[in-house]
Write a protein that binds this DNA or RNA. Structure first.
Lengths: 330, 330
DNA sequence: CCCACTCGAGCAATCGTTTTCTCGAACGCT
DNA sequence: AGCGTTCGAGAAAACGATTGCTCGAGTGGG
């Protein structure tokens, strides 16, 4: 592959002039500049990124580390991040941690090594990762979940309030034994949703008990098992609050298996407004998270930090919106 | 951030020794090696990726450029690619082209500049892109769609056969006026699905006509309009073959709006076995593409090419599976 | 006892850019 | 005409790693 000196030779100038001409930097004689451009074109010259990055000590790349590429919530975040990053001239590297702390750590490590300009992270809570980030000056923005020590910019959703609203909504619709599948313990979003659920029960003056709560990973399979175990009880719940759309698939499959119709037989609210939720009969009542906006805001926060380091970290908390549909109507 | 010479100074050795010790290369005195490791640990040293890449003239990064991160089909491909790449010690960069030729070209450009080890691409058909790739020696694997000139390794699906089978299935179930929403013209997968649809009509001895075909982008909105325009005809179709799961959402919404029940009122087959397709009532008959496998195979092909360049390019064609469910049962 | 060989570690070159510094020429002003 | 200033382009020094080459010390054999 052609290098800058090949171009320089062909154009009959020095490499410095090539660099300046191609980057439109200082004033270069138009004629020379034209020769350089022609030579670069002829050779199909692409600047060597690593060399440039090494010299400039900076890259125009952001890394986004999310826990599940197959979850529409996270891909929507990714899209929000990408649109903002792209508009600012940054490329986006998307990494999939699968919610595995080791994989997360590994990807953070790669990102730091490659000297990306900044990292957007939806943390698993791995302390190794935070330690790694603490030792470095690369700017980080936490999305959806905070870093254990709140030292970075953070974009969150008010999960607790959202869960409370959803629970209250179920109570107002007359459901009395409301169950909850909040996701794995230790993950803040899950814990907050559980807390909000309890708030909701309290506000509705319903008895709070732990027997109607089942924790599992944020996966369909875990949700299937949880739902099954709740519904097999002698006193099964008459409504379910489900913590994300992937789990919702598992829950709804289980309900279908058991012949339970959402709404009439059992109230269902799930987090995330996936496109297919309106296709169900009855359509699914959801807590719509502004995922795209979360990504866009996070990216903007990161870009701001790149241009103005040293500012104190901020936390932005966005709100979810309850979208009432048929699955909470008897 | 600490450099290799900081480590060398602290350990009291040369940078060469540090490099060798940390990379486990030549035989290094165990005691020195221990000192180096300790020094590196103490300083939190991470090798500078750009510098290393520049010197080694290679990176352990693959780029995957897909046209829609929000389409489960592509994210499943991404997961397949990632699993294989990760196991081989490569990181994966995911880029989203949105099916926009310019964005695709731009991302290919970035990938080439950053000197990634290889590129996996689901091409939009942009000739600029192919020209760019032709001028370079970076290995490329095309996934889902071929590059215009079949010079690269390629992983495809037998779209034509799959579409024919789906069409035949509809015909056997007694649907007589089968419509088709194959996606945009110019994209090979779309064109092949259309061809397969026509094959199917022919095999079923049904009249082929262009009046029951509507082309649109691979988006829900386009599909909504197409479906509406077909169904508003005086002689509407009694079945629809839809080219992907995103479009299927649009079609199913339109059917619901019009009060048409899949299966009974109108047969529906869609490409892609998204998780939610079983939740519908009736559940959706789909053409299940082995997306994960396509990704895994593509990644393997790319890795093979990296280790053994010069082999003639191969094309692997995988098969889809028709999964019959309620939406094609009257 | 000396020579040759091995082994391990450092020196220095190298990768391909960007950017500072230097220098020569040209121009304008007094 | 001479001097100072400006302007543009080249020479060369980084950036931080890897690696071929060199060299010194130690060892074993003749």
């Amino acid at each position: 592959m052609a290098t800058i000196s090949d171009v320089a030779t062909l154009a009959g100038v020095s490499t410095a002039t090539v660099s300046r001409a191609l980057n439109g930097k200082a004033t270069v004689d138009p004629e020379l500049s034209a020769r350089v451009v022609a030579a670069a074109e002829e050779l199909g010259y692409r600047p060597n990124g690593p060399a440039r990055n090494l010299r400039k000590q900076e890259t125009a790349v952001l890394a986004l580390i999310i826990s599940d590429v197959e979850n529409p919530f996270f891909t929507a975040i990714a899209r929000g991040v990408e649109d903002v990053a792209h508009a600012a001239g940054y490329s986006l590297v998307l990494c999939n941690s699968d919610d595995e702390p080791d994989k997360e750590r590994e990807y953070v490590d790669v990102a730091l090594q490659e000297r990306v300009a900044g990292v957007l992270l939806s943390p698993t809570g791995n302390t190794d990762t935070t330690e790694l980030l603490d030792r470095n000056t690369t700017p980080v923005v936490a999305v959806d979940r905070p870093l254990p020590e709140r030292t970075s910019d953070t974009v969150l959703l008010d999960n607790r309030l959202a869960a409370e609203e959803a629970t209250l909504h179920l109570a107002r619709r007359g459901y009395r034994r409301i169950g909850c599948l909040p996701g794995p313990s230790g993950i803040l979003t899950a814990d907050e949703r559980l807390a909000g659920y309890r708030d909701g029960l309290r506000s509705a003056e319903l008895p709070g008990s732990t027997t109607l709560v089942r924790r599992s990973r944020f996966k369909a399979e875990g949700a299937r098992q949880s739902a099954r175990s709740l519904l097999d009880r002698p006193d099964p719940p008459d409504a379910l609050l489900v913590a994300n759309n992937v789990m919702a698939v598992g829950v709804l499959q289980t309900l279908a298996d058991l012949g339970l119709r959402p709404g009439r037989d059992i109230g269902v609210v799930a987090f995330d407004d996936a496109p297919w939720t309106t296709l169900l009969d009855p359509p699914l009542t959801v807590v719509a998270q502004p995922a795209y906006d979360m990504g866009a805001v996070a990216a903007q926060l990161l870009l701001d930090r790149l241009t103005a380091p040293g500012e104190p970290p901020t936390t932005q908390t966005l709100s979810a919106k309850l979208v009432v549909r048929g699955s909470t109507t008897r």
